[in-house]
């Protein structure tokens, strides 16, 4: 295709992406270097029956005017990045000096909002992703061996958890595990503990969110693996059988290598999607026990009166850096695969 024609075909798509994906990233970086204006204070002398007092009063009008003139706020350099709500260098150094032992240091760091969110996001990503791959593969093996007439309905049912809106899916589960919901009250009976609540303990909340994550994403892995299983070369399987390979060996040496590219694909998509975990925290109202990077950004900007663009920007930049680090190995691999295919 000629360069000119290519350019005109791709132009509309490229413009929207540059305007609404690339520029916002720039805007986030700029925002993160600024911080809200300080309120302008006026000294006012207040005289009453007991003498005069000097007081500092916020000049609402001037503050609003300043905010209007320079909505971005004042320049703050990297100050937002290093403050207590983000990388918190001072606090970390302090904790390092004062803590006795690594465990104490870790628990102190996890009290800082950014590290708390980072810890949950990483744990969620690295626990849910392998579990999704495993469950997806097992379900695919299972469904593949079902008689034909029940395959269709099984796939239909399996698609539900994936296709439902994440916020709605988590709400549905949240109501069931409520202390007065079906799963919650049955668990109370099983453990004979009328005060058992999955929402109260941080550990149970984390587990609950991850169970939701696996429930929500397994169908995706299942469908992809299932499609892959349809294309396993039967000649190779037969040859392996003739050579005396057991069922396990056939799965290990023929089926799994055949599914390897699919696994990479699911891994890539799952890493991207799990790292941005956000809706379940809103749905499960879990913010007291678990926050994610996306959630703290949302928390900074969703408040209607006070929006902290600087803070949200800094967290966003750190999140983008996190995503990049996470994806570099997978991207390099995709790059090589693609290069081999194209050239």
């Amino acid at each position: 295709m000629k360069n000119r024609t290519f350019f005109w075909f791709i132009l509309p798509s490229l413009i929207t992406m540059l305007l609404f994906i690339a520029l916002p990233i720039v805007s986030v970086v700029v925002q993160s270097l600024h911080i809200e204006h300080e309120a302008i204070l006026n000294e006012v002398e207040n005289c009453g029956p007991f003498g005069c007092k000097k007081e500092l009063v916020i000049d609402v009008k001037e503050t609003a005017k300043l905010k209007d003139e320079r909505p971005l706020g004042r320049f703050n350099g990297l100050g937002t990045y290093t403050n207590r709500n983000h990388l918190a260098f001072t606090e970390i150094r302090h904790a390092w000096k004062l803590s006795n032992g690594v465990a104490d240091f870790v628990s102190k760091s996890l009290n800082l909002p950014f590290y708390r969110a980072l810890a949950f996001t990483l744990t969620y990503t690295f626990i849910v992703t392998p579990l999704v791959l495993m469950f997806g593969f097992l379900i695919a093996l299972g469904v593949n061996s079902l008689p034909k007439y029940i395959k269709g309905p099984t796939i239909f049912v399996s698609l539900l958890p994936m296709i439902v809106t994440p916020l709605i899916g988590s709400l549905i589960l949240f109501w069931m595990i409520d202390a007065q919901g079906i799963v919650g009250s049955i668990l109370q009976k099983i453990f004979d503990d009328p005060n058992l609540s999955l929402k109260a303990s941080p550990l149970l909340t984390w587990i609950m969110l991850m169970v939701y994550g696996v429930w929500h994403s397994s169908p995706f892995a299942f469908i992809v693996f299932y499609a892959g299983l349809q294309t396993v070369p039967s000649d190779t399987i037969e040859a392996a059988m003739i050579d005396g390979a057991s069922r396990w060996e056939r799965t290990k040496y023929v089926v799994l290598p055949h599914l390897m590219p699919l696994t990479m694909f699911i891994l890539l998509i799952q890493l991207m999607d799990n790292f941005r975990v956000f809706e379940p925290i809103v749905g499960f109202s879990a913010q007291a026990n678990a926050t994610s990077l996306s959630w703290i950004i949302y928390n900074d900007i969703s408040n209607n009166e006070d929006q902290f663009f600087g803070s949200a920007g800094a967290t966003s930049v750190l999140t983008i850096i996190g995503v990049s680090i996470l994806l570099i190995p997978v991207l390099i691999r995709t790059w090589h695969d693609f290069n081999r295919k194209v050239i």
């Binding site: 805007s27 790292f275 956000f278 900074d300 663009f309 966003s316 995503v323």
Partner: peptide, 12 residues
């Protein structure tokens, strides 16, 4: 890119 990071860039 997590959507919420982009959204935080749009708002202002």
């Amino acid at each position: 890119m997590p959507h919420i990071t982009l959204v935080s860039g749009y708002l202002l």
